[in-house]
Design a binder for these strands. Structure first.
Lengths: 246, 246
DNA sequence: TAGTGGTCTAGACCACCCT
DNA sequence: GGGTGGTCTAGACCACTAG
């Protein structure tokens, strides 16, 4: 009674913190600059460390911060745009140096991938592992699933399993005519092995790009590429050189 | 000494929990089924609630769970694929019922958008708000920024600001010839207003799709659409009907 | 009003990186 | 060894939903 209702909007503390720190990032910090450590920041803002961490996590999710254990928290550079437009791609590995072949193995495909390939979950496929590197930094790890039926010409002898084997699978795949591809993008979290190659912790947020390569009415191969969500912006340059023309 | 080193891999508890619960989800639960509450689950697994929550958060991020305050945690249905292929789009709002116009206002564009539009940050633009609904559920909220110069024919009188105004802006925009568009996808967190329209909490993870509409060598409009990352899989059907043919 | 998930605290210890 | 972020605990209270 008699008291004026003073903004009784219980905005969470971590949300407010995120805003405040975000603004400070714009005005007071340069890219690459290192922030005070979490314990000090928490004390400075008068909150528990867990609460501060919630704010930092959000900022990291948005690509504004970068945190490394044992090192500290730094201001992240703007996200790099990585081209995932389909016209650029054609078959995987055509004269591209953006992807590095890592190795290849024979294995079964995960259930979801087997469904896309329309094969039995127990059927064996070639699994090619590749890594995409941009400006010296790994940005994506890919698993390319190729059913044996798609590469009948592949000689089985060379079972070295190394990069040479991976390139051999890709070379055979290119013998097919590519009729088209579909692509989808969704949010995921990095599996342990992907995380290691991407220099992140397991569970880090990633953008999962799934591509079906179609040939002769069938799905000839499926690629599952996981991109670092913190540092990457996926671009689909559907106009591309058109913007340059005229 | 004398003790055999027993798998001293300090896999985080929450990571292990996530795996265990994820497997249980596959085998013991049906879509829509409600899980025991967090306090009980934590007790059952012998961990603190915060630790259990870390596991649930990951599963929610991957679209496997859905949590609602005051209600409970349920098993999420598979993500819905929403088509964001550019051929389908042409100008925004051409005979589509997937998008609902909400309203339109005159405002300045955020700095990042002003840069894409190549206009002054203080220049006024039409901001059209739209909502994308799929199967009765809101999946995306969009802000379409249209510089006044792109819609010279727009009559200023009708400043109602409601859906009618929004449709008028779109109608005028369609007078231009569309030369092409660029699109990019990145991870973000929902702003308060988007979160409300998407029926999520502020900060919820979203996929931000930014589109530049090009006309006569200029950027005629910019769309920033935020899709619910938990329930959506963005699809780029670059083959589409090709898969149907032959 | 009872029960749910969301926020917050004040500690502790661990894994990792640098010097 | 000293400092960083990452994990974990055992509590407490709040905001929301439903019966």
């Amino acid at each position: 009674m008699g008291t004026t209702q003073l903004e009784t909007v219980p905005e969470p503390k971590y949300w407010h913190l995120k805003t405040v720190i975000g603004e400070a990032l714009d005005s007071d910090f340069a890219v690459g600059e290192i922030l005070p450590n979490e314990r000090e920041l928490a004390a400075r803002f008068g909150v528990a460390r867990a609460t501060l961490r919630q704010a930092l996590e959000q900022l990291e999710l948005e690509g504004r911060l970068q945190r490394r254990r044992g090192v500290g928290t730094t201001v992240a550079p703007p996200r790099v745009g990585v081209d995932v437009s389909t016209t650029q791609h054609s078959w995987p590995g055509v004269g591209e140096d953006t992807w590095q072949s890592v190795d290849s193995a024979d294995d079964t495909a995960p259930a979801a991938v087997a469904r896309l390939l329309d094969i039995e979950p127990t059927a064996r496929v070639h699994v090619v592992r590749r890594l995409r590197v941009t400006e010296g930094q790994p940005v994506a790890a890919e698993l390319l699933y190729v059913p044996a039926g798609s590469v009948p010409g592949l000689v089985e002898a060379d079972a070295s399993g190394g990069p040479a084997r991976a390139r051999a699978v890709l070379r055979e795949l290119r013998q097919l005519t590519l009729d088209g591809q579909d692509r989808s993008v969704e949010l995921g979290s990095a599996r342990a092995d992907d995380a290691r190659e991407l220099d992140r912790l397991p569970g880090a947020p990633v953008l999962v790009v799934t591509t079906r390569y179609l040939s002769e009415g069938r799905t000839a191969a499926v690629s599952v590429a996981t991109y670092r969500a913190d540092t990457c912006r996926l671009t689909f340059g559907d106009s591309g050189d058109l913007a340059m023309a005229s």
